[in-house]
Write a protein that binds this DNA or RNA. Structure first.
Lengths: 227, 227
DNA sequence: GTCTATAAATAGATAGAC
DNA sequence: GTCTATCTATTTATAGAC
């Protein structure tokens, strides 16, 4: 039965969003929830409290709308991470920050992880050159940090691509599983708290530190960059 | 819906597969390639060189067919990994084996990774209890290895769930990106060889060893379990 | 800019011949 | 067991009123 139509959710004294913005927000949410193919334009319209025709007034096609959603998401997260690389921190601190920021940023934009996962599953067939490059930026950011750490002698040799694989993707999956974390805990018979963000961040930082740095430097970071 | 009669398994030298087997193979391939929603029953039928009606003769719905595909895939891979846990190897060797086997097994069944990624992106909403439990087995396998290593004093403390996150998921993503690995290398301006399976396996084993074991034990495993 | 109505194509699923 | 033909619902996209 129709259980629906709860009226969202705008903070008081906030101006109403224009239709294009509402559509983009609704599309991001729906695409993240169901994927491109399973998302209907009708649903996006309903979510945005608009008619379907309005979507085609603002965007030429469902495909096009999806493309804009992707670029927006990837750009915003990428920008934050690039800033870390340009910060004046030491390489190991940058890496810790990279991990912590990716987790918190990805939590705030909870649509990012499921969308990325589906694109990977798709073999990147839906990504245009620009979006592809946007994703490659993240690898480059990590590469830069590694190079820096190598040059200063702080890091041991490691291939940035491999470090990227073992750092970024656990984060993405961690983020994507957040809606079902309690269900997972129930089935696996463990406490959900074992999967809370600070612990996860600390674990990732820990294994990266031990992977990259000599034993003597493996003590937990005293600055405690964990959120 | 009555339980269907089990077909006798065919000897390996009997070439023609029966229609049910052909449908399952085709469905696995198509679901892996496009995901559940974007895969049409017509396409599966064409892939299996059969008519659409044949699919509904063997399976009650597209959903049902997908469910069987999932269970078959997860069971086969899960079985192999459980065997490792029961082998007489030392915990660190088991962990190395786990990584290497997951990569080779997942490469052989290349449909596994994209399908799992999409289910994660879906938030597990399409997984029934049984399939869910199948996935949880893998966590338990890792947990068992960790417990063993802890008991013998070989491993330092680590939460198995977190180790699972940082071990299994880079593998899944590694497997899923294999079709576009050369494209990624071209865009990222690096040699594809840097991402070949033995190197990736060695990297994962390396960081796990360093994450879990005291510094003195961090030398590469002499047995060279890498494929 | 926003809506209703509808076209046009396609999808899952079934009937029924052989 | 396998096929053709078809039913029905859904979906992307557009026309056109206001």
């Amino acid at each position: 039965m129709a259980k629906r139509k709860r009226r969202p959710r705008r903070a008081p004294n906030t101006p109403p969003l224009d239709s294009r913005t509402r559509i983009l927000a609704a599309a991001t949410a729906e695409f993240a929830l169901r994927g491109f193919a399973a998302t209907t334009v009708d649903r996006i319209a309903a979510h945005a409290r608009l008619n379907k025709a309005m979507i085609y007034y603002h965007f030429s096609s469902k495909q096009h709308l999806y493309q804009i959603v992707l670029r927006t998401l990837f750009t915003s997260v990428g920008d934050v991470l690039v800033q870390i690389a340009h910060s004046p921190l030491a390489p190991d601190q940058k890496l810790d920050h990279f991990v912590a920021t990716f987790v918190t940023e990805g939590t705030a934009r909870h649509q990012l992880a499921p969308i990325i996962l589906r694109e990977i599953a798709e073999g990147g067939r839906r990504l245009d050159e620009e979006t592809f490059t946007l994703m490659a930026h993240i690898v480059r950011v990590m590469g830069g940090i590694v190079d820096e750490g190598r040059a200063s002698g702080q890091f041991e040799p490691v291939d940035p691509i491999l470090l990227y694989l073992t750092t970024v993707w656990p984060i993405i999956v961690y983020l994507a599983t957040s809606p079902i974390r309690s269900a997972l805990a129930r089935i696996g018979h463990f406490d959900v708290a074992r999967l809370d963000a600070p612990r996860f961040i600390e674990h990732l930082q820990h294994i990266n530190r031990r992977a990259l740095m000599p034993c003597t430097a493996n003590a937990p970071s005293p600055t405690g960059v964990s959120s």
